[in-house]
Design a protein around this nucleic acid. Structure first.
Length: 496
RNA sequence: GCUCCGGUGGUGUAGCCCGGCCAAGCAUUUCGGCCUUUCGAGCCGACGACCCGGGUUCAAAUCCCGGCCGGAGCACCA
């Protein structure tokens, strides 16, 4: 694929750039930009990235590239119960594939001391407390707008309890660090929120060195400030979190970044949920993170969906707060535009039937590798007299004896009672409505075409296919697919 | 239930802030036609939308009110 890309760049730079310019819409300008921007991607390391998550990556990258500045990758691994150690490597790999340029990476589990420092300060200022009530009691009180007994105790007492919490005096669930906001806030989601909790489970990176873990709202706010972010792009599911975090900004007197909340993306028929995928892989339902049925970037890459198409898609979608329906059709259309000019044409014969053609002379077939680029050459096959070919069974069986059909770029044949006979090479029969089908020579290797729904179709591919492993090709009359050698040729279908 | 968002063709989006140039633009899909030894690409054309109801105004997709519909959050997850 990389080679194809290079080829395209070299020979037809205008094919990429020109099109992009005239057809791509420009992303809306970011409000409040004065000078370089500082933005972030903040995935949690629970698995590789999926198409949904690529939105924030692409959009952040687009803006940092437009305005100049710094893009941080911040791995949010403050919940030891939801970490896949492999994700620390998979996420950067996925970002690189997407063409997202990360300037600096920070990992939150390296920064516990920093969070603790701010936590202590906040206690001293009287804006937080350690609560040792049972969780449900505390929550019930809060929902009624009532302070729990610990809320109003003096900062010295709070500090002391905090030290005890850090020192291991409490077990899981026995103490929690809560940030005070406003108990009478009309939105109960905004009222006092927990900022640190105790977890005994070892962390994949820090082991059992820490047991007091910051919750997302605290670590995110501290890091957003520490990294000097100017703009934060986040899903609107974080709207309330933004409100919560604003209290920290107020208490500490920090300058606030510009927040932009974008809507949800509904994705029908696509498995995105990391936990479900993981379960599926474990149980053998999926072949791996790149199973073609999944919405992971790895799965899309395997099928030959290009990162450029994904970028184009998200740029078109933009940053509105409305929820949207993800459109595979639109993504495929963009991908087709990118892949069509570079994909070699090949014949795949699904459910093949072998047909003997009698009465033919020796022939040379040379179907072009690409109809728009004759200079790329052709796939060349010499057909002996009386040759055999594979053709699609359903199309062949639909013919009646005496019917003529054209083998593309080879010759015409007439169906007979038990085979076929040569019927000349006159192209004018096409005007009379003779159909053209693809074919594969007798010595063709088998191949399997794997569809995104997981179904597979067995067939034959012309021998040239062996030389295209790794590439995205177009099987004529079928569609685009990417070729892999997995102990036999397997083609993963992208789209028509 | 409470709090907060939002509603432009099948899908996505432009316009809405600063009412008229919007009898609504673009992309994609679908359907025709041309071209083509692929049912791909390309070219040409067509269908298709301002959630509803009031109000303000000479004039509303754009402003105001009400309703309806959709979504998010209300975790010691992120």
């Amino acid at each position: 694929m990389e080679e194809q890309r290079a080829l395209l760049d070299e020979r037809f730079p205008e094919a990429i750039e020109g099109k992009k310019k005239e057809e791509s819409k420009r992303l809306e300008d970011l409000p409040g930009v004065s000078g370089p921007v500082r933005m972030r991607l903040a995935p949690s390391p629970s698995g590789p990235m999926h198409i949904g998550q690529s939105r924030m990556a692409i959009l952040n990258d687009e803006y940092v590239k437009r305005y100049g500045g710094t893009l941080f990758l911040r791995i949010e691994d403050t919940n030891p119960e939801n970490i896949d150690p492999d994700a620390y490597d998979m996420i950067p790999e996925d970002l690189e594939w997407l063409g997202v340029e990360v300037h600096e990476t920070v990992i939150q589990s390296d920064r516990f001391e920093l969070y603790y420092e701010y936590a202590a300060k906040l206690l001293e200022m009287g804006h937080a407390y350690i609560c040792t009530c049972p969780a449900d009691e505390w929550r019930a009180l809060k929902n009624k707008g009532v302070a729990c007994p610990h809320r109003d105790e003096a900062p010295e007492v709070q500090i002391e309890r905090w030290e005890e919490m850090l020192g291991g005096e409490y077990g899981e669930g026995e103490a929690v660090y809560v940030v005070k906001t406003d108990l009478n806030h009309p939105n109960p989601a905004i009222r006092d929120w927990p900022a640190f909790r105790i977890v005994d489970r070892p962390h994949p990176r820090t082991g059992d060195r820490y047991r007091v873990y910051p919750l997302m709202n605290f670590s995110v706010a501290v890091d957003d400030h520490e990294l000097g972010l100017t703009h934060v792009l986040r899903g609107k599911d974080h709207l309330n979190n933004t409100h919560r975090q604003m209290y920290l900004y107020e208490y500490f007197g920090w300058e606030k970044p510009v927040y932009i909340h974008y809507g949800w993306v509904r994705m029908k028929d696509t498995v995105l949920k990391t936990s479900l995928i993981k379960k599926g892989i474990r149980e053998g339902l999926y072949t791996g993170w790149d199973d073609p049925r999944l919405g992971t970037l790895r799965a899309l890459a395997k099928r030959g969906i290009s990162p450029q198409a994904i970028r184009r898609y998200w740029v078109e979608v933009g940053l509105k707060e409305v929820d949207i329906e993800f459109s595979w059709e639109n993504l495929y259309a963009y991908n087709r535009e990118i892949v069509d000019p570079v994909a070699k044409r090949l014949f795949f014969v699904p459910n093949p039937v072998e047909v003997r053609v009698s009465g033919s002379p020796e022939m040379r077939a040379a179907p072009p590798l690409h109809p728009s680029h004759p200079e790329w050459g052709a796939r060349e096959y010499t057909m002996p007299p009386e040759f055999s070919v594979y053709v699609p069974a359903d199309e062949w069986n639909a013919l009646n004896p005496g019917d003529i059909i054209r083998l593309k770029d080879l010759c015409n044949v007439r169906k007979t009672a038990n085979g076929a006979e040569y019927a000349g090479n006159d192209l004018s029969v096409l005007k009379r409505g003779v159909r053209i089908i693809q074919w594969a020579p007798a010595e063709s290797p088998p191949a399997t075409l794997v569809y995104p729904d997981g179904s597979e179709v067995k067939g034959k591919v012309e021998p040239f296919t062996r030389r295209c492993i790794g590439e995205v090709v177009q099987f004529e009359r079928i569609g685009f697919a990417r070729l892999w050698d997995e102990g036999g040729i397997r083609a993963y279908f992208a789209h028509r």
